[in-house]
Amino acid sequence: MKTRTLFIFFLMLVLVQCGPSENKNNSEAAFQMKAFITLLEYDLKLLELEIESLGREVQRKFRENKGSAPQQYLHGKPIKRGVHNNAGMDDPDACTVYISELAEEGTELKELLSATGSLDELFRGIIGQHEMVSQVYFNSKQQVNKLYPPYDALAMVETNLDVTSFNFYYLGDEKNNPERETLWVDEIYIDPVGRGWMISLIHPVYIDDALKMVLGFDITLNTIIDNYLSKFDNNFVIVDATGTLVAGKTKAIESLSLPPLKNHTYTQTITSDTFRKEEFNLFRSKSREVRKMASKVILGNESEYTLTDYGLQVRITAERMNILDWVLLDLAF
């Protein structure tokens, strides 16, 4: 935390020395936008380093476990298809482990559970250290999900769920990520275990050239709104590369003729990827002028645009982010 505090101090000092320039309004907007993006991406980069470190630790545990007889128990219970430590009922400090009915009983499954049985403390430590991260987990081809904090898997997950059918697994697999890189899943989707709209950071873990699992960190959009957007007075709006709304201030969202953002709640279990609906996409805004603006800014890479719509004139400044494929818009009324 001390390192981050010093970084923020020097960032603000440098940015203050950079302005103002000829155009005071444009300079101030650019100042605030660069500060927002720099602060957010500083934390995102820390998470990339953290998940890569976790991946190396998982590899170490597999190497240590190699050649030993697989344990037949998980938290004192026989290995079986189903859920262990549901919603922390057995141990609030332990992960929930979900084993789908699609899992094939055998040595590979037992080795996976044996090698990852002691990951609970590491997962818990990451949650405690990084305020941005709401969940730490892995998903495997053996149809196992291990996640902290524990959740009510019996109520939220089908017993025969295919964990490899979700973007937080398949985007990191051999076919979609042959370079075996750490990736951001920056298209907004609904968390299957009930935490609302989010993005994910994923990292594939290979053992002896075989994909053993895909690690994941989840970040809820509420976290981005509370920890970053709310710290600035600007009317910021974030959209992804497709023009879909990620997050933003209420007044700014309304001026783009988009419906108000609400955190999605649901009672039914999710069985596949569920992304933000088309009604939150700038290219499908009710306003022709907003659709034109989206084309100029997102597709044409224009950094400034004046939106005149419904008798309201709004000066829009755009800045592309580096780590995530997002565009930050600053709306000045």
Results as ranks from 00 to 15, higher is better:
V297S: 06
L329H: 02
D273R: 00
I190F: 08
L49D: 13
H84Y: 14
V214E: 01
I298Q: 08
P178T: 11
K296F: 09
E52N: 09
Y266G: 14
L40D: 02
V239H: 02
E108T: 00
I202C: 03
V83Y: 03
E319L: 12
G243Y: 10
G172Y: 05
L54D: 03
S165T: 05
S295T: 04
F168G: 04
S303P: 00
Q59G: 06
N26W: 08
Q72V: 05
F333G: 10
D152S: 12
Y73L: 02
A35V: 05
P78V: 01
Y169V: 00
N263S: 14
I253C: 03
P204L: 04
F275V: 13
Y151M: 12
D91N: 02
C18D: 11
Y189A: 13
P70E: 02
G82S: 13
E101T: 06
R180E: 07
K2E: 10
N227G: 04
C18E: 13
Y170L: 07
V163E: 04
K231R: 09
Y305A: 04
L221Y: 03
I190C: 05
V327F: 14
I253E: 04
N26R: 13
N85L: 13
L13N: 03
W184Y: 12
N86D: 14
C18P: 03
R60E: 11
E101H: 12
A30P: 02
L329C: 01
R288W: 02
G125W: 12
I270P: 03
L229Q: 09
N160Y: 05
P260W: 03
Q313Y: 10
D120K: 13
